[in-house]
Every structure is written in structure tokens, then in C-alpha cells.
Design a protein around this nucleic acid. Structure first.
Lengths: 343, 343
DNA sequence: GAACAACTGTGGAACGTTCCACAAATGACA
DNA sequence: TGTCATTTGTGGAACGTTCCACAGTTGTTC
């Protein structure tokens, strides 16, 4: 009839990317059988399967993800939502998640929200639209309300201490109370009594560290007042001011490494010696801690392991199990910022 | 007939997530009209549109991405492939891309390949399967071959100097030759003559910096041999060894900040003064540069802008324009690691 | 008030898979 | 050789959209 395109027996016109139907026609079987063969079903005669595989191979066939997901109603893909892409702490966790995901045959996609609640919510919605089977939220300052509504639709695991945990979401975090205690005890064990805390944002993890700082100070019967600072300069200034120098701290536990590094810099700028004039403990044990001189004593969280645990919890939840609450133990890594003569 | 599910007029059984058909039925119109209304087509009477929007809203309808993509054959989504998630340099570029993507109404998904070529290729394929309309590859050590075959299917832009650029892919990079020249000239301007280079991996950007180091040294008529080191300790050792100390470098241009920071630490560990005994220039001007003491002089690349440019190029390519080659200019940020008494 | 154009709205066929209820072929057994 | 079970393979209906060719409805104009 003078048709300009390749018209095959069945009325299917082949053009553009090869589809399962193209494979079927070239192999002389039905599309259903191709589908079965490609997915490794048992009810296909080995030789036919091999034949189909060959044809698919030489046609350069790749299954269309959209069509597959639409038909199956699932995607085999999980979403990772990071609060902040520029935080090494967050990205390390993400890598732990991905490594674990790969081993169980799930693929992962990543997004982040620039530490902004609005952006984070939008991203969360976007990942759902994209069809993630489950989502792991890393340390995100997400509205618990949003979290809960999302959790009603698909499994969600939060890594990092959430504000208020709806019990429909799983969670993995490190024992901030223990971490803060380790830091203070370490400093007290070195003879410090005027130990201050350099506190962070009002986020749950920081708050927990702050609270534990107080209770540990009390438990160790260290002298009141327990000083809490919010910026490195205020602290350094207090040490330099004759009016306050006598009561100024000799040691500081900072709520994270980045903050500790800023204090480290400010102290050196002020001509203070570390650790002789001021001992510093950070939190997170990021690479930064090993690049400063003296190196930074820090509380280590097993980030990679936390990511793995989160993924496994998510997999369990995908399998219908209820969410859990998983708390891992941090440990202290002693370095030169508290121990003299150790680099 | 005793059916157990809500059976609607048309034979459509409503269950689970609401579909466009549910909206149509509740609004008393056809699914086609709902589709038109939701996508803001002009041929819909304003009141009906509003009515449909209301119904969709109260049903909590969200369009199914898979079905939409399948029907439209495009996704409105671009992929960002990072070489390494833990590099601040890479993630900053990614953020520039995303910011720009948001302004033009594209959404972006992120993946990365742990600096591993195999993993990177797999991710590239995965993003194509996922239906990205275009992909921006950030600094990835991807086989040019793979890049080319991918570029045959969809627009690709590479940020960072690629090994060999197939001219079917767009690219954005910083002028490494100029960057290296700025570094060497800065050090020479401060009176240094024995300037060494701390070189990086054999990747294109590092190689370009190395080459430009040599030509600039020659142009400035600085004494041979032009020393190149591959590890901080070799360099510090050379300075400490009486046999080589007399000819050892007094200044170093390192191929990136991280490497510079390690040298910085090694130098301090060896009791050297920075910049008096050893001046250091890094590359990338990451936050790390401002946290060290003394702070690190570094070559700044406009990472955010590079990301934006990459995205705009990709958008142009999606619109059918040919790929371009875009080179941006770096500048030197002078700090205490080269200038005495400046923190 | 007939003819025609401009608006609004509709139904059904894609899109490329999977899933399900069957059909056809093969083999086993009496 | 007929019966029945098992293995292989098939066709068509989903999945939830968009797109296209049309069908109704209004309004305008002579």
C-alpha cells in the first residue's frame, strides 16, 4: 500500500528506540514471553530464553522504566533527602546508604534542600512523585507534620535526631547524650574544671548535647556556672578580658567540628595556645579534624554504619515490618587539641 | 450486584490514589478536560477550570509521573552526575546547577560514582533509564567513549576539564593555565624563586596546572630545575634534609586546597613557619582555606557560576542548539599562607 | 434565521510494560 | 492410544497519562 515505514506482521510500526514488541517480532515470539525471558522467569525454555536475550542484545533493547513502573506500581528505587549537600557529615551518611542499597539491588537518587524547610518539603514531594518506593531523610529540619503525612504514603526513615518523631517513621541516630558525656569526662579527666560548651543551632541534636553537657557537669560536681557560648569570638574575648579571664573556661566542648574549627582559628588568632590555654573537643570526627594543627579531638559517629542501618530498616519496612528506633554509640578520638605533644 | 467496591457510573472502580479519572467523575467532566485544565490549557472555560482545580485539590490528586512521562515521552528532569559526593568543589557546582534549574522550571536529580569509572558509567546509564532529558556530568573521570555514546542519545554537558571532549558534548571549565600562572606569579612577586609544584592525580585539570606551572616558571626565568612533588612529606623532608635544604623550595603551588592543607599540616608538624619558611598557594578556595591558620591563599573558581552556565548550556542544547565550550576565569585570593601578618 | 466561526468539551487510541487467564505442545502413565 | 499433568507460550486487559480528530454549543453576521 506504499507505506513509508517498516510495517511488521502484527501491525506494529517500528521506529526510534526498540521496544519489547520489536524484540518479540525479531525473535518470533510474543511480547509476553520476551517480558518473562528478560526478567528471568522459570517458565521459559532455556534455548528460547537465550535466543530472546541475544535478539534483545543485538537490538540494543533497554526496558522502559516509566512503562515498567507504571505497570508494576513500584520502582525499585529509593530516595535520599539530604538537609545540606555541603556537609561532609551528611554526605558520608548518604554514601553509607547507597553502598548498602547497592548490595540489596535497590538504586538510589539524591536530593537536598539547602537547610531550608520549604525546599526540603518540596523535594520530599518531588521524590514521591518520582515514584520512590521509600525515602531516607538525612538530618533534615522537616516539619514533623509533613513527615507524618509522607509516612502515611510510603516508608520513611530519618537519620539524625528528629524534632518530634511520628512513630510511623523509622529513625537512626547517635547517642548525643553519651557523646557529650564522653567529651566532658575526657576534659575533666585531663584536669579541667572550667569547661564550657559552644552550642549550635536549636536543633534536636544540639539541644541534646547541651542538656547532656549540663548533667555531666553536675554529675562530676564541676563548679557552677556551666558556661555556654554561642560564638567563638565571645568565648575568646572572655578569655582575653581581664575582668573575666580568671573565671574563663580552659576547655571547650563544641557541638560540631565546623564550629570547633572556627573556635580553633579564633583562639590561634588571639595568640592562645591549644591545648595549653584552651583545650577543644569537637563532634563528628570529620576529615577537617585531622587537617587542623593541632589536630582536633572529636566525638566520632559511625556515619557509614548509620547509613547502612537506615537502609536496612527501610528495606524491612518495605517488607511490611514496623519502623524501629535505632541508636548507635559514639566514641571519643583523642588528638592534639586536648592532649599536649600529640600533633 | 453486590460488588464490594465503589463502582462509578462509567465502570471505573476507584481505589487507592486518586487518578485523573476520579477527578473527572467527581467534577462531572471527561478525563481529557481534566488533563487540559490541570495543565493550564487555554481552551477551557475559566469557571470549569476552577471547578476542576477545586475537585482535584480536595481529592488530593497528584499527577502520576510515570504515566505522564510515558505518554509525553519526556520528563522535565535533568540528571547531575557527580564524580565524588565528598568533594566540596563538586557539591558547590551541583548547587549552582540546581539553583539555575529551579529558575527555568526543571527539576534535578543527583547521583555520584565514588570517583570510580565503572560506577560512574553505571550511574550514567541509570539516569538515562530513569528518563533524564539531559545530563550534567561534574568532573567525572568518564571514558570519552561512554560519554560519546550517551551524548548520541541525549544532551550532555561536562563541568570540569574532560580528558578528551567529544564535540557532541558541551563543556564548562576554568582556565587552569591562568590559575596556575596567577599562583606562580603571586609567589614570584613576593620574591620567591625556588617555587615548587605539589601535583595531583593524572587528571586533565591537574595536568594543565602542571604544564602551566612549567611554562610560567620558564617565562619568569626562574631557576631550573622546576621541582614537582607528589606528596607533602617528600617536600617537607627535602626541606629538612641538610643535603637538599639549600636548594629546597621556599614556596609551593599545590594543585588543590585539600592537598595544600595536608602540606600545611605536614609543614607545621616539621616545625616550619608558614609563610616565612614555606609559602603555600592552594586551588579551589574552599571553606577549608579559611579555617586553617595561617589561612590559605588560593585560586578561586566561580563554582556557582560554572554550575549555572552548565545548566543554561544544557537548556540551549535541549532547545536544539549545538554544544559550546565555555571557559571561565579564576582569580587569586591572597591570605596568610603567602602574606606574613595577615592572619 | 441561516451560515459560519469560535469556543468548549469528548471519546478513544496511543505510550511500553506487566499480569492474568488461558491455549497449545509435550510428556508420563495406564 | 487415550487421559491427564506439566511445561511453554499467548493474547488481551490493565496501569494513568496525553494527544488527536472530532462533536456540541454559542455567538456573530448578513
Amino acid at each position: 500500500m506504499g507505506l513509508s515505514q517498516t510495517r511488521a506482521t502484527n501491525g506494529h510500526v517500528s521506529r526510534g528506540k526498540p521496544t519489547i514488541i520489536d524484540v518479540a517480532q525479531h525473535a518470533g515470539v510474543s511480547k509476553s514471553l520476551v517480558s518473562l525471558a528478560l526478567r528471568g522467569s522459570s517458565g521459559v525454555k532455556p534455548e528460547t530464553r537465550q535466543h530472546i536475550l541475544n535478539v534483545a542484545q543485538e537490538l540494543g533493547y533497554r526496558s522502559n522504566t516509566w512503562a515498567r513502573n507504571l505497570a508494576q506500581g513500584r520502582s525499585g528505587m529509593i530516595g535520599i533527602l539530604l538537609n545540606d549537600l555541603s556537609s561532609a557529615y551528611h554526605t558520608d551518611i548518604a554514601q553509607g546508604i547507597e553502598a548498602a542499597a547497592t548490595t540489596v539491588g535497590l538504586s538510589a537518587i539524591l536530593t537536598h534542600g539547602h537547610r531550608d524547610e520549604e525546599a526540603l518539603s518540596a523535594r520530599l514531594g518531588h521524590m514521591q512523585d518520582l515514584g520512590a518506593d521509600g525515602i531516607i531523610v538525612v538530618s533534615a529540619a522537616l516539619n514533623p507534620q509533613h513527615l507524618a503525612t509522607a509516612a502515611a504514603r510510603l516508608p520513611i526513615v530519618v537519620v539524625g535526631r528528629p524534632a518530634a518523631v511520628p512513630d510511623t517513621v523509622g529513625s537512626v541516630w547517635n547517642n548525643d547524650e553519651l557523646g557529650a558525656r564522653l567529651a566532658v569526662e575526657h576534659l575533666a579527666g585531663l584536669g579541667h574544671t572550667r569547661i564550657a560548651h559552644l552550642s549550635g543551632s536549636p536543633r534536636p541534636a544540639s539541644r541534646a548535647r547541651l542538656a547532656s553537657f549540663h548533667t555531666t557537669m553536675t554529675d562530676l560536681a564541676l563548679p557552677e556556672p556551666h558556661q555556654v557560648f554561642h560564638g567563638p569570638h565571645a568565648l575568646v574575648h572572655a578569655m582575653g578580658d581581664p575582668a573575666t579571664a580568671r573565671t574563663a573556661p580552659t576547655a571547650v566542648f563544641a557541638s560540631n567540628d565546623r564550629r570547633a574549627a572556627k573556635l580553633h582559628a579564633a583562639a590561634l588568632d588571639a595568640g592562645l595556645r591549644i591545648p595549653e590555654d584552651l583545650a577543644i573537643v569537637g563532634y563528628d570526627n570529620t576529615e577537617l579534624a585531622t587537617l587542623l594543627r593541632p589536630q582536633l579531638t572529636s566525638i566520632d559517629q559511625p556515619r557509614h554504619e548509620m547509613g547502612q542501618r537506615a537502609l536496612h530498616m527501610l528495606v524491612d519496612m518495605l517488607g511490611g515490618q514496623p519502623p524501629r528506633r535505632d541508636v548507635v554509640e559514639p566514641r571519643l578520638i583523642a588528638r592534639g587539641s586536648t592532649i599536649p605533644n600529640s600533633a
